[in-house]
Simulated scan of single mutants.
Amino acid sequence: MSTTSFDKFQKRKLISSYFSVTLSIALILFLLGTLAFVVINSQNLVNHIKENLVVNVYLSAAAKETEINQFQKTLAMKEYTKSVTYVSKEEAAEDLMKTLGENFVAYLGDNPLQNSIDLHLKADYVTEEQLADIAIEIKGATFVDEVAYDIPLVSLLNDNIKTISYYMLGGCGFILFISILLINSSIRLSIYSKRFIIKTMQMVGATKRFIRRPFIFNNIKLGMIGAVIAIAALTACMSFLDTKYPTIKLLSNVPMVTAIFGGIFIFGILISWLSTFFATSRYLNLRTDDLYY
């Protein structure tokens, strides 16, 4: 093989090595980014379910309109309140008639329902203990007859959320560990092909820091390119999902998207730097005879 052909072969081999490392990093970072979106949006879904739980505050017939308005404003200002809606007994009767499909008021001759306030709480306050405390506080008003909410549903919801959270945490840890191993293996393989160059530079007097520097800088650049590719692919996928399912609005949450994309970029740089550092250190510390095995 001529010198020119050998140089071309080496160049193709080098490009192939860079391409495989970059592609491996991009694919793994894309997977991690997707996982981050799933985890964060699953929490948003849980919060949405919790905040749709209704606490019904039933008011006595003797309650005056001014008292109800003032009470509603007081509730709206509480730290645990998401939203407050007043429901008159006439509105409640209309809703119930639509559900039942018959006019029960005409049958009974009177509307037995009460005026009420539908209270939606912030997700952090939807626990059995805090709901009980809130109910006691609301019952302190003299014109409140009853505070009702679905206690079994709250208990079941929180228990299931805890179980799912543990499984998701374990799954995330496992996938992160596998991802680190795969990126590390790809970079180590690319360094392995240059082990004789590393040892030759060391034998002619180059310091370990001097030898490591170009490898680290080069693989950090590959990590950055891989991160950019992963971010571009994630943006395209999220944009497609937002277009097909407008209600999910994945890209509309700018702080979340920025945090995930920033984390992908930083992780790509960090894992590339660490993997290259330890891979080059391994071959720098090997004896020349050991390089053949």
Score class of each variant (00 low, 15 high):
Ser185Phe: 11
Val38Gly: 10
Ile231Asp: 02
Val84Tyr: 05
Phe30Gly: 02
Arg195Cys: 02
Arg209Leu: 14
Ile183Asp: 08
Cys237Ser: 10
Ile220Ser: 02
Asn218His: 13
Gly262Lys: 04
Arg12Ser: 01
Gly173Ala: 13
Ser20Ala: 12
Leu234Pro: 03
Ile271Gln: 11
Gly140Ser: 07
Ser60Gly: 02
Glu51Gly: 00
Ala106Leu: 01
Cys237Ala: 09
Phe210Arg: 14
Ile211His: 08
Leu251Trp: 00
Phe215His: 05
Ile187Trp: 07
Met201Asn: 04
Thr276Ile: 08
Lys199Arg: 11
Asn253Ile: 07
Ala230Gly: 07
Leu53Tyr: 06
Ile183Asn: 07
Lys208Ile: 10
Gly140Phe: 14
Asn285Lys: 15
Lys82His: 04
Thr85Pro: 00
Ile260Ser: 04
Asn218Ala: 02
Cys237Lys: 01
Tyr86Pro: 00
Gly33Met: 02
Leu270Gln: 14
Ser42Asp: 06
Val84Thr: 03
Lys122Tyr: 04
Asp145Pro: 05
Leu251Asn: 05
Phe9Glu: 11
Met77Ser: 12
Gly101Thr: 13
Ala141Tyr: 08
Ile266Glu: 07
Gln202Phe: 06
Thr280Ile: 15
Ser252Phe: 12
Asn103Gly: 09
Pro255Cys: 12
Ile231Glu: 00
Asp110Ala: 12
Phe261Gln: 12
Arg212Ala: 07
Val21Asp: 04
Cys172Pro: 00
Thr247Gly: 05
Val257Arg: 08
Gly268His: 00
Trp273Ile: 03
Met238Lys: 03
Phe9Ile: 06
Ile187Ser: 11
Leu100Tyr: 03
Pro112His: 04
Leu156Asn: 15
